[in-house]
Amino acid sequence: MDKENLVALYRQMVLIRVFEDRAAEMYAKAKIAGFLHLYNGQEAVAVGAVSALNPDDDVVVNYRDHGWALARGSSARAVMAELFGRATGTTGGRGGSMHLVDVKNHFWGGYAIVGGHLPLAAGLAAAAQYLKTGRVTLCSMGDGSTNIGTFHAALNWAKLWNLPVIFMVENNQYAMGTHYDVHSAVPMLQKAAGYNMYAEEVDGMDVMAVREAVCRVAERARRGEGPSFLNVVTYRYRGHSMADPDVQRDKAEIARWKERDPITRFARDVLLKRNLVTPKELEDIQKSVEQEVEDAIEFADKSPEPALDTLYDYIYQQPVRNMQIAGSLIRPPTVAKDIPTNGKHA
């Protein structure tokens, strides 16, 4: 990778970090409601993985998806506006934090039912195989999703049909608050071995390691060698969501992982060590990112809420006759004018 691209990886990670910190602030100010799952600590995973893919490869992830959307090219404005529930958001305020999407960038969405998106990823890969598009599907998930039925059903199917899909576990070692040793009976790689699937363990705090691993397995998939499995070991600095007081994790454990922070480590061990940037340039990047996120917040805050008359849009792609007689579709939405907006929820 040349200097420009390496610096771009750094900038993306910083953008995600600053974006998440500011999102937490906006949540505290009740600008954002519902559930908010932050990506702090895991930045190297999305940034490294996306940098290894072609622009038309398909990406499907879980609800901890802000970093993925930003890495895949959604603007900070659109993502922040979505968190604010505004018409200018990635889904016009329909999906919120957990359901970002950007299909033009082949980002097929954040999915919030644990494990629910794994079969969808296999299906996207099945379509790529059947239609001979040459695309690879990258499916990211948490370690908590590796015990549910769809995980096993999707891995079995992908191996059986030799599908071009990468199952990537962002193993932050906690399913909400439950540690891996309490939620899983076997080591992670053994789960892939059960389906005789090519697997690697990756340092998820090292953006280059993630990038190289995804490059390797994407090439395997493009050569027709089928699915693979990456156990990307990482850590999230904050609780499961903003609703999580994070009392169950050992503070010393969090501190230990922060010593391996992917952003400072990449700056120190790669960018500065190789004299690719000066400390001043890193400061400038930090400032420009802070400005970009501040601008996104202003944009989101000024954006209108979605128009009420769009409420029924896209329930169906293809309207059918007699839709107007279908119960709820006949009635225009009626909403009180003075409802509190963006109220904070538990």
């Binding site: 398909d58 079969p119 969808l120 299906g123 379509a127 790529a128 239609l131 999707a154 079995n156 199917w157």
Partner: peptide
């Protein structure tokens, strides 16, 4: 397919998203 209805539907959804 395997006897895994959640995957039969889920893989079908993904394939439909992907142009089939």
């Amino acid at each position: 397919t395997p006897i895994a209805e959640e995957a039969i539907i889920g893989v079908g959804i993904g394939a439909a998203m992907g142009g089939m």
